[in-house]
């Protein structure tokens, strides 16, 4: 890009908790103004990576700079350029939304009236003006996340970390969170977000890094990633395993993934033409399809195509 160093740069990050090795050498680069999604299932090490990069956790080994500052040598400098919103909303339950933001603003040493003004601005921006007068414990999950994000923006940091911003939210709250994040990105910030949802990475990120068991196993644009798995997946169900085997023969086995009950196949397809071709071929070979569904690819599919194994963690499914 330009001469300026990347906003976030990490290499060889390692971290263990007791005997459990959570990060086994993670490398990441996020250019200024870019959005990187760290995509992976529960327990892959996403949160640990974010906590290290945001100075909340010391690494056992490796190098990381954020905004040009070394996270272990200059944590204060790092803190002055980052905002963090976690998967566990880090706001005070007993205070109101407004009080939370004013308190944090004052702890950023904005001064009383500037802190109030900034709190009002952010409540406005995040559609929390009315809710701002109520204690946070009365908030819905989506409102909490928005307030948490607002809290991380008080000092207008150029770099934001978002740890699973929409996990556990209903589809509507997720949409509104995505809109808020898109607006932020348009304002030119650098964003590193973690997610279990392929769709979220696709919607928000310029680049995606897939993390699994503490290692980055793939990195590229969402288009790169999707080209390895296809835009959509066709799931075909057959009456029995004999039909399944016949169908596998007709289609060609390389893109096929068998499901548990030996009557289902799923395969990457690229639009309706693909589907028509497959169905026509099956029809011509006399293989009857009992049921079919066209699905958006999930994290499972990403992992299947990258590692060839189905994740044992069922929570990796997109909602």
């Amino acid at each position: 890009m330009t001469e300026s160093p990347p906003a976030i740069e990490a290499s060889g990050l390692r971290k263990s908790f007791g005997k459990t090795e959570v990060l086994k050498g993670v490398d990441l680069v996020v250019e200024r103004g870019a959005v990187l999604a760290l995509l992976g299932p529960n327990g892959a090490g996403k949160t640990t990576a974010v906590r290290i990069l945001s100075t909340l956790l010391p690494a056992d080994g490796g190098v990381a700079t954020v905004g040009g500052h070394d996270v272990s040598r200059a944590p204060n400098e790092v803190r002055s350029v980052v905002g963090i919103a976690g998967q566990y909303a880090t706001v005070d339950e007993i205070l109101t939304g407004h009080e939370n933001l004013v308190m944090i603003g004052r702890l950023y040493h904005l001064g009383k009236s500037a802190a109030r003004q900034r709190a009002d601005e952010l409540l406005e921006q995040f559609d929390l003006v009315e809710a701002g007068k109520r204690p946070v414990k009365t908030y819905s999950g989506g409102m909490r996340r928005r307030l948490d994000l607002a809290a991380s923006l008080i000092a207008k940091p150029p770099i934001i970390f978002l740890d699973e911003p929409t996990t556990g939210l209903d589809p509507r709250s997720r949409q509104s969170m995505w809109n808020v994040i898109r607006e932020l990105v348009e304002s030119g910030i650098t964003l590193l977000l973690t997610t279990q949802y392929l769709e979220e990475a696709d919607q928000l990120a310029d680049r995606v890094a897939v993390i699994d068991h503490g290692r980055i196993i793939a990195e590229g644009t969402p288009a790169d990633l999707k080209s390895t798995i296809g835009n959509e997946r066709l799931e075909l169900e057959f009456a029995g395993s004999a039909e399944l085997t016949a169908a596998a023969g007709v289609i060609g086995v390389d893109t096929i993934r068998r499901h548990e009950p030996d009557t289902k196949l799923s395969l990457a397809v690229d639009g309706p033409d693909d589907v028509r071709q497959i169905l026509t071929a099956l029809d011509a070979a006399g293989v009857k399809v009992a049921d079919l569904a066209l699905l958006k690819p999930t994290l499972d599919d990403v992992f299947f195509s990258l590692t060839g194994t189905i994740q044992d963690d069922a929570e990796g499914n997109a909602a």
Binding site: E9, P58, V63, S72
Partner: peptide
């Protein structure tokens, strides 16, 4: 620009900025 992260915990090497520390500490408190 980059340096190897050693074992030093972060809390031992924070707060060396030239802010009037005492004044802010009182205000923060």
């Amino acid at each position: 620009m980059t340096a190897i992260i050693d074992q030093a915990p972060a809390h031992k090497i924070r707060r060396h900025n030239p802010r009037p520390r005492l004044r802010w500490a009182v205000s923060d408190a």
